[in-house]
């Protein structure tokens, strides 16, 4: 692409994305009117409970949704181009080249019968502008392995010879192999133990800093997101309910859901307090609640929340949220008696 993009235009812009899953019981409203932007070199975290649509958004970006998924409306604009309008073949060539992924289940994301190096080389062979020789590709893989802290000789090994953390690091190396613009990390550390988790996160942060690429982190673990992102989007039942700089959202969550989510997470440095669990269940998305989707569980809900859907509005510059009663949300975490 020789298209010139002005500095102010975000690299990735998702506009009014609506995505449904068709099931035998009806349409499941998995992603509802989600918009966000991602600047070059930025890192965005998407948090929310399981089934809130985080992964569905990620899969929409690379267009690898299950067969029963329908993107009803919206645009995914990457460097001025709407990804949703590309032909399947064009899209295939963009995957990994523009947007690569670090998967949740690193354990199972390697094909057991091929060497790890060969599987990375497969991506390189497809996407590099000039198809490299095996020797050239191997040199690149060795370089990537060193970057993520794996002995380069391991590329001759099979996936079952890798430990869990090594497999995940190798997935990161593979995600970097074609110099993508964006890496989507979907629960990149969930399957790992806490120590390895910390190391892998640190590596991801370092790599992002050094190579200047954009990362979208997806996690239900808000602490992980806080550590490594500079923007955060809080999702609830298929909707983005709060979006802003991570520091601001953490310092002062303004949406009742974000506030409750943070109150249910222990803080090591803050004052000692009892945790407030988030009561109730996420709603059934076959038949989402009227008005604000959070109102059945919201302590500040009013009649208006039941009747009318709150729009996403800028509260402060760059900090948007969708709530009618955000001024009632306390500035300190919720405490239980």
């Amino acid at each position: 692409m020789t298209q010139t993009v002005s500095r102010d235009t975000p690299m990735l812009e998702v506009r009014n994305l609506v995505m449904n899953y068709g099931t035998k019981d009806g349409m499941v409203s998995a992603v509802e009117d989600v918009s966000f932007t991602l600047a070059r070199g930025d890192s965005l975290g998407l948090v929310g409970e399981s089934g809130c649509g985080k992964t569905s958004i990620a899969l929409s970006l690379i267009r690898l949704l299950p067969d029963n998924a329908v993107v009803k409306q919206g645009e995914v604009i990457l460097d001025g181009e709407n990804m949703l309008e590309l032909s399947p073949e064009e899209m295939r060539m963009r995957r990994w080249d523009d947007i690569s992924m670090v998967f949740q289940g690193a354990m199972n994301s390697w094909n057991p019968v091929y060497r790890v190096g060969d599987q990375i080389r497969e991506a390189i062979d497809i996407h590099w502008d000039e198809k490299p020789t095996v020797r050239e590709a191997n040199a690149k893989i060795a370089e990537l392995f060193e970057l993520v802290g794996i002995d380069p000789s391991m590329m001759e090994r099979y996936p079952h010879e890798f430990s869990g953390g090594m497999k995940q690091r190798a997935v990161i190396a593979m995600a970097l192999s074609c110099d993508p613009k964006i890496i989507i990390a979907d629960e990149p550390t969930t399957a790992l133990d806490v120590i390895v988790q910390e190391q892998v996160l640190e590596e991801l942060r370092q790599i992002q800093h050094d190579l200047g690429m954009s990362i979208i982190y997806i996690s239900h673990d808000i602490a992980v997101i806080a550590e490594i992102t500079n923007h955060i989007g809080v999702m609830y039942a298929g909707k983005l309910v709060e979006y802003g700089p991570t520091v601001d959202v953490f310092a002062r969550p303004r949406h009742p859901y974000s506030w409750l989510l943070l109150s249910s997470t222990p803080s090591v440095t803050g004052p000692r307090m009892k945790l407030a669990p988030l009561e109730g269940e996420p709603p059934n998305l076959l038949d989402p609640p009227s008005g604000c989707r959070f109102h059945p569980r919201c302590p500040f809900a009013t009649d208006r929340c039941v009747a009318e859907e709150p729009p996403m509005e800028d509260i402060v510059e760059g900090h948007r949220l969708a709530c009618w009663n955000h001024d009632q949300v306390p500035t300190t975490a919720k405490e239980t008696e």
């Binding site: 690898l64 963009r94 998967f103 199972n108 991506a123």
Partner: peptide
């Protein structure tokens, strides 16, 4: 249904190669 088939798709591997090299081989 395996995850590595999804990985191959995300890598942009052509469908025929996924079928023969990744799925059928296993």
């Amino acid at each position: 249904r395996e995850d590595y088939i999804f990985t191959a798709r995300a890598k942009g591997v052509p469908e025929k190669v996924i079928r023969d090299r990744h799925a059928a081989r296993n």
